[in-house]
Design a protein around this nucleic acid. Structure first.
Lengths: 330, 330
DNA sequence: TTGTATGCGTTATCAG
DNA sequence: CTGATAACGCATACAA
């Protein structure tokens, strides 16, 4: 019950030096100021006692928690695995911890948590598809906390996003080139910038009247949406899906309707997830590098933390033509 | 550049009260101690100034950061999406933030621990398949940080794990009942408790000499391992895979070898991931509730944080027979 | 009901 | 090269 924490004072006493010497040693500022012998002494005492610098005290004093927060709408989607990996790896290399907030697609919660995070547990924020918190009325502009917006855009905030417009155009263009005239769009139910971009690009190439059904990123939901689309308009020869999980759902629907892919129906996905690779045939998809997205997001945040104003970036995506697309049956 | 943070002192001055009054209001202890009028006054001043209590100072003072750390070996595996979701949701409900550490399969705690422990002020640790940090020589036993071990076991630490033994037995038993005599095991390359359990269970039911190939949790690696197994012993009629991602890799291998599932080869997976559902045919698998696993892990940690000594738990898993298993061709 | 004083464990600025 | 000493922002016992 009495979990007495061991502090730098204890270490100092044990090593027979002053507390500030211990501090110097542990904050890496001992170089050329503390003798090697003393340093070793302190280290030994610390190990013996099991001393760990208190992060809260350090954060309070220095004003930096060395922690960044990453807010995502749905950790359950495999795409975020890569994003997390990239952000986390980069952060660790820079000596930062990552606090993860999964909003479970609850936008209000996203906003709320982003705001809460600004309190100081986090030195900076990486927001995936969630809007930055409103600036407090009295807050000074220059006191704004570093923020990087991912897959979204926001006045005055640095952002990274995938070139989804290019990707969508490539995907739908590919379908058109194969000769598809009747293309359906299985779209995300979530009204977020990245999906708006896709919608616009689809409409541009496939026509404003493109049949569209919405779903979230679960197999069942996607399956239903595809079914709905295919029932409503049996003349559809191709489906563009906002994500590979959705594409997988479309495969389920096609299997049920006994429409063979790609002979009876072409399907294109987005993201380049494993789930798309194991489909039979493997789905043609727009490959995005989620790990790189996470890495760049942290890099941009890190630059801000260092006092710079990095430029927003757009990452390329690439259409990978696999087995799910073919000319329509005439 | 001069990001002056606004403190409780500023708010106090603005509201014309003392700093402690502000503190009382914001720590929720104002009830019955501060008049409603004063409380409102303070709140108004805080909003005007954009005041947010400093988390580091609060953590330092109270000794609790209201943050827990979750250490996982590979965020990239979809199984962890569920785990994260469960842990995160439960933590949020209890007012805790979650810091995520992805060790990227870097098995030795040495690398991870430094980050993990200094990963900001975490009040407790949830460790997935990674060994707890060695107790410091001089550390007092009762000063140990609350720890929950997931899918692993460790002397003296509370743990949650899936009943993988039961699941594996059910899976392999199912294969035996169908009449399979020659069963191969596509196993994880990582030597962790949960996989040792599976190995033992497989050997028990399928015989000690069970052919086995190892791989990590990527499609390509799993595909190679399955290929290797199938080449080395063409008489194999069934494959038990340590995970659905691995099972998906096995499907890839089967497709290449033109062995039809389940007619020429039965396959069983583990975890019950989406990737297994979209395979054609859907894979028979041992379904584990990752979300629940995460939820319980936090629950156990939370209990420890409250000063209790909760019992370790074992969560049930269930065999879901789908289309990938059938009697062997005679 | 509100204000005063003090300390949490660290870092940082100085003297010595 | 090392040791006092003063903050950092908040919470709380105690005084008013």
């Amino acid at each position: 019950m009495s979990g007495d924490r061991v502090t730098s004072v204890d270490v100092a006493r044990r090593a027979g030096v002053s507390q500030s010497t211990v501090s110097l040693v542990f904050s890496g500022k001992a170089e050329g100021r503390i003798s090697a012998r003393t340093t070793a002494l302190v280290r030994a005492a610390a190990v013996e006692l099991g001393y760990r610098p208190n992060a809260a005290a350090r954060a309070l004093k220095t004003g930096a928690a060395r922690t960044v927060a990453l807010v995502v709408p749905d950790v359950t989607n495999p795409f975020f695995g890569g994003l997390l990996r990239g952000a986390q790896t980069a952060a660790r290399a820079a000596g930062y911890a990552v606090a993860l907030i999964d909003t479970a697609n609850d936008r209000d919660w996203g906003a709320a948590s982003a705001e809460a995070l600004q309190a100081g547990p986090a030195d900076g924020l990486m927001l995936f598809e969630v809007d930055p918190p409103p600036r407090a009325p009295g807050a000074r502009a220059d006191a704004a906390e570093p923020i990087v917006v991912i897959e979204s855009e926001s006045r005055g905030h640095t952002s990274v996003r995938l070139d989804v417009e290019d990707g969508t155009l490539a995907a739908v263009g590919h379908l058109r080139e194969l000769g598809h005239e009747r293309i359906g769009h299985v779209a995300s139910i979530h009204d977020r910038p990245t999906f708006r971009l896709r919608r616009r690009a689809v409409d541009r190439l496939a026509g404003k009247g493109t049949p569209r059904a919405r779903c979230d990123f679960t197999l069942d939901s996607a399956r239903s949406a595809a079914l709905e689309l295919l029932h409503a308009d049996p003349s559809l020869t191709a489906l563009f899906c906002d994500d590979d999980v959705i594409a997988a759902g479309a495969y389920l629907a096609a299997r049920e309707l006994e429409r063979r892919i790609p002979a009876d129906l072409s399907v294109v996905g987005f993201d380049g997830l494993d789930i798309g690779r194991v489909l039979d045939p493997p789905v043609t998809t727009v490959v995005a590098d989620a790990v790189e997205l996470g890495r760049v997001a942290f890099e941009l945040l890190h630059a801000q933390l260092a006092g710079n104003r990095p430029r927003s970036r757009v990452l390329p995506v690439e259409l990978a033509v696999r087995g799910s697309t073919a000319p329509p049956r005439t």
